[in-house]
């Protein structure tokens, strides 16, 4: 049986010594706290189904050192790896895949130039092009861009607007419509983050996640807001996501991935042991 995936997300930035570190890690039992390669190895041992590395510097210098991180990880960790952050060109994708990544995520660059998704999926195959969609609820239903109205947790109706540049810039694009479009352009997977819940630890935005899962026939990764393992259960049981991405709950050592999976299994969610 196809299992639901648990994916730890490593937000990689440049540390004080110029090396690469994962933001927000207070994980014990690491030789070098925050070292991305060590953390990747630890998560692999805990049973992570995939790893996502996001280059949160999204800079030219950042990418060069990210490639080193991917290469070193790929030499010892043999599970799928996805890399995102500032990817703008076919050349960016090629160098990241060559370093050992299996998939890349596009976000702002795809919104600004949707044909980039088509070009990239034609070149490398749909399976390695993940579109990261960041969105935020907008209660102005009179907005001419509002196409799909979703009732939020508190009962208010809203449409979800795609946001770019890390959530700083709204785009006027309806997130559900954009999800359908990226599927038709050849994206193989969607990573959906709601800015309403991202960083809150109050749980994923189940409403927009469910709406996107129903709108497309490609896998959807729920992202943003996981504060405990019950939230992961909801992402699968309520929103019907194919995978759940989380950072802080694993980084702080609140739960191991094994514990999260044990809980999900006890609630009837199929997960890989």
């Amino acid at each position: 049986m196809l299992t639901k995936r648990i994916i730890p997300c490593l937000d990689v930035t440049i540390g004080p010594d110029g090396g690469r570190v994962v933001k927000g890690v207070e994980f014990v039992n690491l030789r070098r706290a925050g070292d991305p390669v060590e953390l990747a190895r630890a998560y692999n041992e805990q049973g992570a189904d995939e790893l996502v590395f996001l280059d949160i510097t999204a800079s030219h210098e950042g990418r060069a050192t990210m490639i080193d991180v991917i290469e070193r990880t790929a030499n010892e960790v043999f599970i799928p790896m996805t890399v995102g952050g500032g990817i703008k060109t076919i050349g960016d994708i090629r160098s990241i895949l060559r370093a050992g990544a299996d998939k890349i995520t596009v976000n702002t660059s795809a919104v600004k130039n949707p044909s980039f998704i088509r070009e990239a999926s034609d070149m490398f195959g749909s399976q390695c092009i993940v579109t990261a969609i960041d969105c935020r609820s907008n209660t102005n239903l009179k907005d001419p861009n509002a196409r799909n109205v979703i009732t939020k947790k508190d009962g208010t109706p809203a449409w979800y607007e795609v946001v770019i540049y890390g959530g700083r810039q709204p785009t006027g694009i309806d997130a559900i419509e954009w999800a359908k479009q990226v599927e038709s352009l050849g994206s193989g997977e969607i990573m959906l983050t709601s800015m309403d819940t991202d960083g809150t630890k109050d749980g994923y935005d189940l409403y927009v996640t469910k709406a996107v899962c129903e709108a497309v026939r490609i896998p959807v990764i729920a992202s943003g807001g996981a504060g405990n393992i019950e939230h992961m259960y909801e992402a699968f049981a309520v929103a019907d996501a194919d995978a759940a991405l989380a950072a802080s709950i694993f980084h702080f050592g609140e739960y191991t991935i094994g514990q999260a999976k044990g809980y999900l299994r006890s609630k009837g969610i199929p997960v890989r042991p």
């Binding site: 299992t3 639901k4 189904d49 399976q127 896998p219």
Partner: peptide, 27 residues
Amino acid sequence: KVPHMGWNSLSVRKEHPLLTGIADGSY
């Protein structure tokens, strides 16, 4: 949903050296 993407279990149908030491049902 297509592609079929993720971890799925194997149901072994016959012996083969490739499967030495690998349990039926492995992901």
